[in-house]
């Protein structure tokens, strides 16, 4: 029992369900299928981004350029599709978006791996360069006439219900993409040498190198993969919004990072799980979307999110402190 309580994920799970029960008790409408579907839908993009951020954070770095990459990939993909392949399929759009993201991610990688610079600072530079380039040279107008294949995907669903009031609620098919990314990241972190390298890098880079890991290759993978996921998430965002607005997405980076940390990943590296990350994403989405349901004015949203960040990080910091005391 004591061991369980020392696991961050276990504590967060309990708190999460307590909050769910509390919200449900205040307003039973919370448990309606429509609401649960809308929560799940809100988790998709944040979840995909968070899983990429998880890998970056485990490796001991922080990247904040993923939202700029995501917006860039979303907007340029829409432009390219409309100009070259207006009849192009969904897969093509995701391939273009993913590729653009991957290329932009490789810029981060070459600075972090090639020049051994901290990713936080590098990504500060790349995020304003990428976003500035897009808005100055590619365009600032919202694209409303997306290719038909993307619009069709925005309507596709894997589950459909008619709720009590006769409204039809659906669960978008895109949830499958979140599940797929979850499985891939989980597999990489858990069962591959690459995944062990990521954890080792976050624990102690010098020992990792001496143990024979190719640190450069690992870092190239981390930032290219982060870029790839950002690109996919960007295209998905335009699918959900049914337009491509270059001003979207950027500005959400801190809440994504907060979700990952809330899920138990250590910001100093070496620690973090896929389960915890999804839980953290569920938690922040839950809070953001449920304040209105329980009658808290939306003005309070930021205060509540800030308190959650402070309390959860304080809890994990204090627990680590006491754990050290017990050892010594």
């Amino acid at each position: 029992m004591k061991k369980l309580l020392q696991q961050h994920e276990f504590v967060v799970t309990i708190v999460f369900f307590l909050v769910v029960i509390l919200i449900g008790a205040i307003n039973p409408a919370f448990f309606s299928i429509g609401n649960i579907f809308s929560l799940l839908k809100s988790m998709i993009i944040r979840g995909i981004l968070a899983l990429g951020v998880l890998i970056v954070i485990i490796s001991g770095n922080v990247d904040i350029s993923f939202t700029a990459i995501s917006a860039f990939a979303m907007y340029t993909t829409s432009k390219i599709m409309l100009a070259l392949f207006p009849e192009g399929g969904l897969l093509l759009a995701f391939a273009i978006g993913g590729l653009i993201g991957l290329l932009l991610g490789s810029i981060n990688a070459s600075f972090v791996a090639g020049m051994k610079l901290p990713a936080l600072i590098v990504s500060l530079g790349t995020s304003s360069a990428i976003r500035g380039f897009m808005l100055a040279f590619i365009g600032v107008k919202i694209i409303n006439n997306l290719p038909a294949s993307l619009i069709a995907y925005s309507r596709s669903y894997i589950a459909k219900f008619t709720d009590a009031s006769g409204k039809i609620v659906t669960l978008p098919s895109a949830i499958i993409m979140l599940i797929a990314v979850t499985i891939i990241v989980w597999f990489i972190l858990r069962y591959t040498m690459l995944g062990r390298g990521v954890y080792a890098l976050g624990g102690d880079p010098v020992s990792t190198e001496r143990a024979g890991f190719n640190i450069k290759a690992i870092q190239y993978f981390i930032y290219c993969f982060m870029g790839f996921l950002s690109g996919i998430a960007g295209v998905l965002h335009s699918v959900f919004m049914r337009n491509a607005n270059p001003f979207d997405i950027v500005g959400t980076e801190l809440i994504v990072i907060a979700s990952v940390v809330l899920g138990g990943a250590s910001i100093t590296g070496g620690k973090g799980t896929v389960y915890g990350t999804l839980l953290g994403v569920a938690f922040t989405v839950l809070i953001e979307n449920s304040l209105i349901i329980i009658g808290v004015p939306s003005y309070w949203q930021k205060v509540v999110i800030g308190l959650i960040i402070v309390v959860s990080t304080a809890a994990s910091a204090l627990r680590e402190k006491f754990a050290k005391l017990e050892i010594s």
Partner: peptide, 27 residues
Amino acid sequence: FLIAHVGIPAILATLGTSQILTGIAIV
């Protein structure tokens, strides 16, 4: 206090307080 005494990494502690302060200002 959050950084030195509680031991929260600076980036997270100040991220949290910035949200709280902006939140209170909005309220």
